[in-house]
């Protein structure tokens, strides 16, 4: 007896954090879904809005404090107190970006363009926009709309749909 399969038809991804790794998790998952022919909608909220805010999107950082998975090159532990020193966060972030460039991973704006070129949709959270005093014109041009939570959920309807919170 063959088992019935129900492949994913739609994924809705929510990005609420603005570090390099959180934003890229969203972009890679989103672009991957588009590449598979899955309908893709991405909702940026709270600090995740940095990824689609013109002023901030190319300046994302990785936090160097309180991340136990962070290690020195070579694998030695990276003490949080070191991460507090001026310039360390900038250096680590530059290193992360260099590693990604070496793997041919695009920058944030190009990645968003790849997603929308394939039909993926990018949305911003209205409440977080109000909180951070952002206007639609502060956002990257490809953002399709500013939505309330309810409006986003309406877009997440249908069978074989998953909501992913990165």
């Amino acid at each position: 007896m063959s088992e019935e399969k129900y492949p994913l038809k739609k994924v809705c991804i929510i990005c609420a954090k603005g570090t390099i790794e959180d934003v890229y998790a969203t972009l890679v998952m989103g672009n991957g879904a588009v590449m598979e022919g899955i309908e893709t909608k991405i909702f940026f909220t709270f600090f995740g809005l940095d990824a689609i805010t013109k002023k901030q999107m190319m300046k994302l950082h990785t936090g160097t404090v309180g991340n136990p998975a962070m290690r020195m090159p070579g694998g030695l532990p990276f003490p949080s107190i070191l991460g507090m020193l001026p310039g360390v966060e900038l250096g680590v972030s530059a290193m992360m970006k260099g590693q990604m460039e070496a793997l041919d991973i695009p920058k944030v704006d190009e990645f968003l363009e790849m997603i929308t070129a394939g039909g993926g949709e990018i949305y911003a959270c209205k409440l977080a926009m109000d909180m951070f005093k952002l206007k639609k014109e502060d956002l990257w041009e490809g953002v399709l709309g500013v939505l309330t939570v309810g409006e986003f959920y309406e877009k997440c309807d249908g069978q074989q749909t998953q909501i992913i919170f990165t």
Binding site: E110, A117, G118
Partner: peptide
């Protein structure tokens, strides 16, 4: 990669889709 295809000079990413 999709990115590579976009730089192939044959078609852009939207066109590839």
């Amino acid at each position: 990669t999709i990115r590579g295809v976009g730089k192939s000079g044959i078609v852009d990413i939207k066109g590839f889709y």
